[in-house]
């Protein structure tokens, strides 16, 4: 029987040191809701598991004021749910994170784990991208700060270096009149994996859209930031024809595959539909 070493560092420096020392043979454990499943099913058999949940910065929620938050990579969905301020400012990010798994999984599943697992269908990733959040990563050669949309490299692959650990996310100051929303399509009503996910973060000045970010999940090898759709929306009163054109942009931004979860045709069509529905929810929230 293979033996696995479990390490639980208390500081970032310690974690970075352990991780870089065991490069290639170690895996980072946050909530473990993906990692432990992969180990059990035999997909992975790491020699060392480095549990980062006991590191303060990685497990804390910091409110920097005016919608700016710093959220530790391993903060669970259930803990973030209990933070009323975050819920008020970033309902779209929270609803995306809260869609991952069951109630039990929510006690562990985290934004950082969802991002680093790098599934194209990860629910919280499009919402993080739409929010404009950035990721702080640290390795033996220092810290970096990257926009979330630059983290994914392909299914199961990230642009983090072999010795870098994701520490936390910085959420930007919330613009006046802005709100976000996330929707996903699943064949069932819960306990399922996104066939398409769409996040919209929008800023309204009265009836005019003055800023927007749109992101899609599960329709390409990585989550997609759809700048073309956002550009169409900005400066308009979000008339139907504008929305339809932006929805078409979403369909065109898809680069999906036919697989057991959906067809190319279906994923493209649903991207546009979810965009329209998420936009409507975000606009309603922004005007509230």
């Amino acid at each position: 029987m293979t033996e696995t070493q479990y390490l639980s560092p208390k500081t970032i420096d310690e974690a970075v040191n352990l991780y870089s020392k065991n490069q290639g043979q170690s895996k980072i454990l946050a909530g473990g809701t993906d990692l432990l499943v992969q180990i059990r099913s035999g997909v992975l058999s790491p020699e060392t598991i480095i549990d980062i949940k006991n590191i303060k910065e990685i497990s804390e929620i910091k409110n920097n004021g005016e919608g700016s938050f710093t959220i530790g990579a391993a903060v669970s969905g259930a803990s973030l749910e209990e933070n009323e301020e975050f819920k008020d400012y970033w309902p779209g990010v929270l609803e995306a994170l809260r869609l991952i798994g069951s109630e039990q999984i929510q006690g562990r599943a985290s934004l950082g784990g969802n991002l680093c697992n790098a599934s194209p269908a990860g629910d919280s990733v499009p919402a993080l991208i739409a929010s404009g959040a950035t990721a702080n990563v640290q390795g033996p050669n220092g810290k970096r700060n990257l926009p979330v949309e630059e983290i994914h490299a392909g299914p199961g692959k990230t642009n983090l270096k072999n010795d870098e650990i994701l520490i936390n996310f910085d959420f930007p100051t919330k613009e006046q009149g802005s709100a976000d929303a996330y929707l996903r399509m699943i064949p069932r009503t819960e306990m399922d994996i996104a066939v398409v996910g769409c996040a919209v973060n929008i800023t309204m000045d009265e009836d005019t859209c003055i800023n927007a970010r749109v992101a899609l999940g599960a329709v390409a090898p990585t989550a997609v930031l759809v700048n073309e759709a956002a550009k169409l929306l900005i400066g308009t009163k979000l008339d139907n024809d504008v929305i339809e054109k932006a929805a078409k942009c979403c369909e065109d931004a898809c680069n999906p595959i036919n697989d057991k979860r959906g067809t190319i045709f279906y994923r493209k069509r649903v991207s546009g539909v979810l965009f329209k529905r998420a936009l409507k929810i975000a606009v309603e929230r922004a005007k509230r």
């Binding site: 064949p187 069932r188 009503t189 819960e190 306990m191 399922d192 994996i193 057991k260 979860r261």
Partner: peptide, 11 residues
């Protein structure tokens, strides 16, 4: 049971 979809209660 992820991709072989029997109904869940909420369905």
């Amino acid at each position: 049971f992820l991709d072989y979809r029997i109904p869940v209660c909420s369905d």
